[in-house]
């Protein structure tokens, strides 16, 4: 049960960390790296409020061991802003009030980021399919969908913006 050394990319920066086998990514981020943007709701992979992107795939950090990061790249909500400029998804969430309590928000934004990276021009159904990965108990989803659709429309007009990865 010796801690393992892992190398990974954290929000764009190369890091080396020491983690024990029973440490899940949610606690690693929140307790060890002080990145509390990933929230713990159900501890069972169901709600998605702990979602982060690992190699650009949405992962529930409560269901992913810290050691699994070795050799991979993780993006948390804290890594989405670039030099204090908000990502267009964050901007759209603000404009459409696509959150209420905000507990699901980090996860929802990251799921949508992964969607846009995988499917640059998604339909409304695709948006619904992707955000059905996570639970929002507050909003009834309409304003989250509106925020996503606004971005899709905007990107369609201005051409593909450079995706932050």
């Amino acid at each position: 049960m010796i801690p393992m050394e892992i190398d990974f990319i954290l929000n764009g920066r190369a890091v080396t960390g020491k983690v024990s086998g029973n440490l899940l990514l949610a606690d690693y981020l929140r307790e060890h790296l002080d990145l509390k943007g990933a929230k713990i709701g159900c501890s069972r992979g169901a709600c998605g409020s702990c979602t982060v992107l690992v190699n650009n795939i949405p992962i529930a950090a409560c269901s992913y061991f810290a050691f699994q990061l070795d050799g991979k790249s993780v993006l948390t909500i804290e890594g989405l802003e670039r030099d204090t400029t908000l990502h267009d998804l964050q901007q759209a969430f603000i404009e459409h009030a696509a959150f209420q309590c905000g507990y699901c928000t980090s996860g929802m934004i990251l799921v949508l980021k992964a969607m846009l990276d995988h499917e640059p021009n998604p339909s409304r159904d695709t948006v619904v399919e992707w955000i059905s990965s996570n639970i929002c108990r507050c909003t009834g989803y309409a304003q989250i969908i509106a925020a996503a659709e606004a971005i899709i429309a905007m990107r369609a007009n201005t051409g593909p913006t450079e995706a932050v990865s």
Binding site: M1, S20, N22, L24, A26, S43, C62, F67
Partner: peptide, 13 residues
């Protein structure tokens, strides 16, 4: 219990 109560364990990749 939850992942936060998980006792130490070994890992083999």
């Amino acid at each position: 219990t939850s992942f936060r109560t998980l006792p130490p364990l070994d890992v083999v990749r």
